[in-house]
Nucleic acid binder design. Structure first.
Lengths: 208, 208
DNA sequence: GGATGATGTGACTGGGTAGTCATGTGACCT
DNA sequence: AGGTCACATGACTACCCAGTCACATCATCC
C-alpha cells in the first residue's frame, strides 16, 4: 500500500503519477519498468517517489488493485442473480464484461495482461496468492450449482475445470491479439461464442 | 548458433558448459540467468565464453534447439502413420510423449517451460517465430483430416482449435505442477485423459 | 517571528549486468 | 628455432537499476 503521503497529495498529482505509471508498465511490464523514467515523466524527484511508495512493487500492486476494483464493477452486475441464468450464459456474460472493461480501460487491461503473461516474474505470484483462491472458489461454486442443475456433466474434475475456465479466457485474448491486431471489438464477441461452444461441446462429433 | 570454436572443444568441455547452462537457465530462466555465474561454475574465463558464443542469447537458443530435437525423437515415432489412429488417440499419444520427454530430460523440459512461461521475455518471440507456424500448420493438417473423417465437428474454427490444442497441453502442465508438487508421473496421465475428454466432449451435458 | 513537522530534492551508494580487448599460452607446422 | 594460429584470460568499460540520505523548502500554528 502507498504511504499516507501519497494519499495526502492533491488528486491531480496522484492521478498524474498513476497515469504515467500505467503508461510505463503497459509499455515495459513490471520487471523492466523503470522508477527513474516514471519520476522523470512525472517531473518529480526520485526521493519524493519513495515518500509516496515503499518501493516499485508497492506502486505496481496498488495499480493492479485499482484495476481489479474497476474490473469488478463490470463483472458484479452480471453476477447479482447467478441462479437466474444458465451456466454458460453466465460465463459468456463474464467474458463479455471483461472485454468491455478492457475496452474502457486499456491501460489497466494492458498492465494486467502483461503481468499475467510473465509467470516468471516476482510479481506474478504475489498477485496470484491473493486472487486465485478467491477466483477458483467462485468458479467452483458456480460449477457445483451447474452440475446440480444438470447443465454440466457430473463427472468433470471441478477444480481443473475452474482453472480451465479462468485460463481459457486469457488464452482467447492472446489468440485474438495474435491473430488480428484490431482492438477489442465486434469479432471478439464472435470468438467468445466460439470459445463457449468449445467449452460446452468440445470438438468431437456428437455421439462419437 | 555457437561459433566454430565451441564445436572444436573436446566433447567433455562442451557437455559441461551445456549442463551448467541448463542448470542456470532452469533455475533462473533466460532473462535472469547470468553469464557470470555460468562461467564461474564452469571454471572458464568470461572471454572464453564469448569465443564460443555470440552472446547469452546464442547459447540459450542453442539449448532450446537441442531440447526441440530431443523432444522430436519422442514425438516422431507416434506420428509415423498419423492416419492409422483416431485423432484423439493421436493427440493423447503426443501429450504422453511430451510427458515422457520431460521425465527423461527434466533440464531441457524446465528451460523450455520457463521460456514459454515468460511471454514478456525477448527470447519468447524469437523462439516462437520459428516454431509456431510449423506447429500450427501441423495441427491444422491433423484437424482437417479429422474433420474429413468425421471425427471432429466440421463447424469448428481450425486455426483457433489448433492454437487451443497446443496451449491446453501447457496449461495442463501448469495446473498439474500447481496442484501437486510431484514430478511428471502416473497421475499426470490421468490428467491427460481428463483433458482429452474435455477436448472431445466439452463440459456440457449431452444433448443439452 | 520562530519553531515544528510534513513534503520535496537529486546526488550518491552499492550492486548487478553483458560484452570487450589487450595480452598470455600452448600446440602444431615449417 | 621461429612463426603462426587457435584458444584462454580476467580486468575493464559502459550501462542501468532500486533505493537512501542529508539537506532544502514551505505551510501552519504558537
Amino acid at each position: 500500500m502507498p504511504k499516507e503521503t501519497f494519499f495526502n497529495l492533491p488528486e491531480e498529482k496522484r492521478q498524474l503519477i498513476c497515469d504515467v505509471a500505467i503508461e510505463e508498465f503497459a509499455a515495459y511490464a513490471f520487471e523492466r519498468g523503470s522508477v527513474n523514467r516514471i519520476v522523470a515523466k512525472c517531473g518529480i524527484a526520485k526521493g519524493s517517489f519513495y515518500q509516496y511508495f515503499e518501493d516499485k512493487q508497492d506502486l505496481f500492486l496498488y495499480l493492479i488493485r485499482l484495476a481489479g476494483e474497476k474490473k469488478l464493477t463490470y463483472i458484479s452486475p452480471v453476477m447479482v442473480n447467478p441462479d437466474q441464468h444458465d451456466f454458460f450464459t453466465l460465463i459468456r456474460e463474464m467474458y463479455v464484461a471483461g472485454i468491455r472493461f478492457a475496452n474502457d480501460h486499456p491501460g489497466y487491461a494492458e498492465i494486467s495482461k502483461r503481468m499475467l503473461a510473465n509467470k516468471e516474474g516476482s510479481i506474478y505470484r504475489k498477485v496470484m496468492v491473493d486472487n486465485v483462491p478467491t477466483a477458483n472458489a467462485f468458479f467452483e461454486g458456480l460449477l457445483e450449482s451447474a452440475v446440480a442443475r444438470g447443465e454440466v456433466r457430473a463427472d468433470i474434475d471441478i477444480k481443473m475445470t475452474a482453472f480451465m475456465i479462468v485460463s481459457l479466457n486469457q488464452l482467447a485474448m492472446e489468440y485474438h491479439t495474435g491473430q488480428s491486431a484490431d482492438v477489442f471489438g465486434e469479432n471478439m464477441i464472435e470468438m467468445v461464442d466460439e470459445l463457449l461452444a468449445f467449452l460446452k461441446h468440445g470438438i468431437g462429433v456428437r455421439g462419437g
